[in-house]
């Protein structure tokens, strides 16, 4: 493949510059003082790197750090629980769709996938009314239920594709040994499907982490507001310098960035498992 080496170099450079420049710039800004960022031309490296913006965001007893810390706890709870429920339900359903024949299977599978084609707001909006009817506004439960309903279709699809690609022979061997379907699912299919399940969980978690709108309306205060909502609130406030805002932004992307860096092969295989056919 030497013939297009320079082309590949160009491509590599493109990906690096394209993906990293904006993120680098936010980090660079967050390590400077207010006065330093105002300089022309800008400092391409922080002249005297300082963590004071990060300290202002997370430490101490002020209004801002309190909100950031509490909403960090919230976002982990909401994303974590929603991910677990989504993956569990999607695994069961995906197995049924992939391996069992039953009446209405095609229609139901299509209906599930069709909800993905709608822009989210046409399906998820009235949820607010439903949630308020059941008294679930401003509760973890309400936010988690909405996340689960939003991410189930994609999760089911990814897992369905993954399970369909598993070799049938092993399962059949299990059936011949007299194991029930549930036993086969539990002892044979699940262990084989672990990589697919991990992919699905990571992708679901990342989607949940990025949510802003639903939690904005479904949560009323800091008892349930996730980090994204707390950061948007910072942006709308007077007297929050851009350097501090950048630090808050970098703080909020640290977790997804870490996941991408360490677990990217699962993300890639998960996102692609449905598209190949």
């Amino acid at each position: 493949m030497a013939r297009n080496h320079w082309l590949r170099r160009f491509g590599i450079l493109l990906i690096l510059v394209w993906s990293l420049t904006p993120v680098y710039w936010a980090v660079n800004t967050s390590l400077q003082t207010d006065v330093q960022v105002a300089s022309k031309p800008a400092h391409y490296l922080p002249p005297t790197p300082t963590l004071r913006n990060y300290r202002a965001v997370v430490s101490g007893g002020g209004d801002i750090p309190n909100a950031i810390r509490r909403s960090t706890v919230n976002i982990f709870i909401e994303c974590g629980v929603a991910t677990i429920i989504t993956v569990a339900l999607a695994t069961l359903a995906a197995y049924a769709f992939a391996r069992l024949r039953f009446r209405g299977s095609k229609i139901l599978f299509f209906a599930v996938l069709a909800t993905m084609a709608f822009p989210a707001y046409t399906t998820l909006i009235p949820l607010y009314k439903i949630m308020s009817t059941f008294g679930l506004v401003n509760t973890y439960t309400g936010i988690i239920l909405v996340y689960v309903s939003g991410f189930l279709p994609l999760a089911t699809w990814i897992l369905h594709s993954y399970m369909s690609s598993l070799p049938l022979a092993i399962e059949e061997a299990g059936r011949v040994d007299g194991a029930s379907r549930m036993q086969v699912l539990w002892h044979v299919v699940l262990p084989l499907a672990v990589p697919g399940i991990i992919s699905t969980a990571i992708i679901t978690f990342l989607f949940a982490w990025a949510q802003f709108l639903f939690p904005l309306v479904l949560s009323s205060d800091l008892s349930t507001q996730p980090l994204t909502v707390a950061i948007a609130a910072l942006q709308g406030r007077h007297l929050v310098p851009f350097t501090l805002l950048s630090a808050a932004g970098v703080y909020a992307i640290a977790v997804p960035a870490l996941i991408v860096v360490t677990l990217n092969r699962y993300i890639v295989s998960g996102l692609l498992s449905g598209s190949v056919k």
Binding site: L113, M116, A117, P119, A120, Y121, T122, L124, I125, P126, Y128, K129, G150, F151, L154, W157, F207, A210, Q211, F212, L213, F214, L216, V217, L271, G274, S275
Partner: peptide, 22 residues
């Protein structure tokens, strides 16, 4: 494979919210 990014906006949510309520 259809859209994966589900990042609805204040706007859009609001629209529907309102409708359902009303």
């Amino acid at each position: 494979m259809t859209s994966i990014r589900r990042h609805p906006t204040t706007a859009v949510l609001a629209v529907g919210l309102a409708c359902t309520g009303m």
